[in-house]
Amino acid sequence: MRVLMAVMVAVLLAGCASSTMDDARTRTPTKTLTSAKADQLVAQCVQFAWQDEAVFGVDAAAYLQAGKVGGYTVYTRAAEVFVDIKAEPSGTAVHYYAIEDSSVSKRRLAALATCL
């Protein structure tokens, strides 16, 4: 029963996050970056960096999922900040989206930059 409830909560959170991310993707990314590293390595690094409780406190949740058109997406709870990471011929493209310009979103961008 507990497992079923955990799965249901995860599905509900993913649905809410997905609509927020789809809406943000219709606009220009907050920041576009590139990396010479493989997309999977960048995505795993970002997820790990965003889970640092010493930097982000109790809001240190970060989730990794396959991207809609390949690559990976790393996002925070309610998708207030997320990043699409995809391998391209010229290197790995990193599109960072922040719903609000805040000190936390700037710290997440700085943590992301350490993974490039």
Rank of each mutant, 00 (worst) to 15 (best):
residue 75 Y to T: 05
residue 33 L to M: 15
residue 70 G to H: 03
residue 67 G to M: 03
residue 89 P to H: 06
residue 79 A to P: 03
residue 59 D to M: 13
residue 28 T to V: 07
residue 85 I to E: 09
residue 3 V to D: 10
residue 109 L to N: 07
residue 48 F to M: 15
residue 80 E to A: 12
residue 103 S to I: 01
residue 80 E to H: 12
residue 36 A to N: 05
residue 101 D to I: 05
residue 8 M to K: 08
residue 1 M to K: 14
residue 51 Q to M: 13
residue 96 Y to F: 15
residue 27 R to P: 00
residue 115 C to M: 05
residue 26 T to N: 11
residue 3 V to N: 05
residue 37 K to I: 00
residue 2 R to D: 13
residue 91 G to P: 02
residue 91 G to H: 06
residue 74 V to D: 09
residue 86 K to H: 07
residue 99 I to K: 06
residue 1 M to I: 11
residue 93 A to W: 03
residue 24 A to V: 01
residue 91 G to I: 01
residue 113 A to L: 12
residue 31 K to I: 06
residue 55 V to A: 07
residue 73 T to N: 07
residue 79 A to G: 10
residue 105 S to I: 06
residue 2 R to Q: 12
residue 112 L to A: 10
residue 70 G to S: 03
residue 56 F to P: 01
residue 102 S to P: 04
residue 67 G to A: 09
residue 110 A to S: 11
residue 97 Y to L: 01
residue 7 V to D: 03
residue 18 S to A: 15
residue 58 V to R: 10
residue 92 T to I: 02
residue 29 P to F: 03
residue 22 D to L: 06
residue 43 A to D: 06
residue 112 L to I: 04
residue 60 A to H: 12
residue 43 A to G: 13
residue 22 D to Y: 01
residue 54 A to C: 01
residue 19 S to Q: 13
residue 42 V to N: 11
residue 76 T to N: 08
residue 111 A to Q: 09
residue 7 V to C: 01
residue 101 D to M: 06
residue 68 K to E: 08
residue 114 T to R: 14
residue 88 E to G: 14
residue 67 G to T: 03
residue 105 S to E: 08
residue 78 A to M: 13
residue 99 I to F: 01
residue 76 T to D: 06
residue 56 F to G: 09
residue 89 P to F: 03
residue 104 V to Y: 08
residue 80 E to D: 13
residue 41 L to P: 00
residue 49 A to F: 02
residue 115 C to P: 02
residue 114 T to M: 11
residue 40 Q to R: 12
residue 77 R to F: 11
residue 113 A to T: 14
residue 116 L to K: 15
residue 74 V to M: 13
residue 100 E to D: 11
residue 58 V to T: 13
residue 111 A to D: 03
residue 99 I to P: 00
residue 78 A to Y: 12
residue 33 L to E: 15
residue 89 P to G: 07
residue 62 A to Q: 10
residue 41 L to M: 05
residue 103 S to C: 00
residue 90 S to C: 02
residue 104 V to Q: 08
residue 71 G to P: 04
residue 104 V to S: 09
residue 93 A to N: 14
residue 95 H to K: 14
residue 12 L to E: 01
residue 67 G to R: 04
residue 23 D to M: 06
residue 71 G to V: 02
residue 70 G to A: 02
residue 15 G to N: 07
residue 34 T to K: 14
residue 88 E to Q: 14
residue 110 A to Q: 08
residue 12 L to D: 04
residue 19 S to C: 10
residue 58 V to C: 04
residue 94 V to Q: 11
residue 60 A to I: 00
residue 13 L to K: 05
residue 79 A to N: 06
residue 88 E to D: 11
residue 19 S to E: 13
residue 44 Q to D: 14
residue 28 T to Q: 09
residue 96 Y to P: 01
residue 108 R to N: 05
residue 26 T to G: 10
residue 97 Y to S: 03
residue 52 D to W: 04
residue 98 A to P: 02
residue 83 V to Q: 06
